[in-house]
Amino acid sequence: MQNTNIFDFLGVETDLIYQKIAALKTGDVFQADNIIVRLEKYYEIESDYEHELFYNAMSCYQYLSDLLVKRGGNNGEQKTQESKSKALA
């Protein structure tokens, strides 16, 4: 079962994480909760345990969002938003 979050209703374009990913230019990098996100030829997500490539910002966002939710636990929407906020801090 897939988790639902507030951005499913408001639109992911309002999520700060999606905005950061969508604003990346070639060579740009940011880090969220020890996960490196960069744009070279493709969007990349890299951590100690994985290195994934994505063709577009939306796919990258969905994967990163799921990772952050898993790392933050599955205690509902509040926990999800707290995890995302902490990741960008």
Rank of each mutant, 00 (worst) to 15 (best):
K25P: 02
L68F: 03
G11N: 11
K84I: 10
E82W: 03
V69Q: 06
S59M: 04
N3H: 07
K20F: 02
A89G: 10
T80H: 09
E52V: 14
E52N: 13
Y18H: 14
F9Q: 10
R71E: 08
E82Q: 15
I35L: 10
N5D: 15
A22W: 01
L53D: 03
Y49D: 12
V29A: 00
R38E: 12
R38C: 09
A87W: 01
E46K: 14
N74T: 13
C60N: 06
Q19C: 01
K25C: 13
D8F: 08
D8P: 06
Y55R: 14
A57N: 10
I36K: 04
K25T: 15
L24N: 08
D8V: 14
Y18V: 03
M1V: 09
D48I: 10
F54S: 04
F7I: 12
F7H: 09
G72Q: 06
K70W: 03
T26A: 14
N75S: 11
K41L: 15
I21H: 02
T14N: 05
Y55D: 11
Q19V: 00
S59A: 15
N3E: 09
A22F: 07
Y55T: 15
Q62I: 12
R71I: 03
I45C: 07
K86M: 08
E13W: 02
Q2C: 07
K20A: 12
I21R: 01
I17L: 15
E40Y: 05
Y18P: 01
Q78C: 03
K84G: 01
I45Y: 00
V12L: 08
K84H: 03
S47P: 04
E44G: 04
I45D: 00
L64C: 00
C60Q: 02
K79Q: 08
I17T: 12
T26W: 03
S85W: 08
A57Y: 02
L64F: 00
Q2E: 10
A87Q: 03
G11A: 09
S85P: 01
F54I: 04
N56I: 06
L10H: 05
L39M: 05
Q78W: 06
I45R: 05
Q78H: 05
G27V: 03
I35M: 11
A87L: 09
I36W: 01
K70Q: 10
S85Q: 13
Y49H: 12
E13V: 12
Q31M: 12
L10Y: 07
V12C: 04
F54V: 05
E77Q: 11
S59F: 04
T26P: 05
K25H: 10
K70E: 06
K41N: 15
I17A: 03
L67M: 15
E52L: 14
V37C: 15
L10F: 11
Y49V: 14
I45K: 02
F54C: 09
S85L: 13
A89L: 10
K79V: 13
Y42N: 15
F30Q: 03
Y42R: 15
F7V: 11
L16G: 11
N34T: 08
T26S: 13
R71K: 15
D66L: 12
A23S: 15
Q31N: 04
Q2D: 08
A32N: 01
M58P: 03
L67T: 02
L39Y: 01
F30L: 06
E52F: 06
N75I: 09
R71G: 14
T80P: 01
G11Q: 11
S65P: 02
T14V: 13
G11I: 07
N75W: 06
N34C: 12
L53E: 06
K41H: 11
T26M: 13
D66V: 12
S83F: 04
E44N: 06
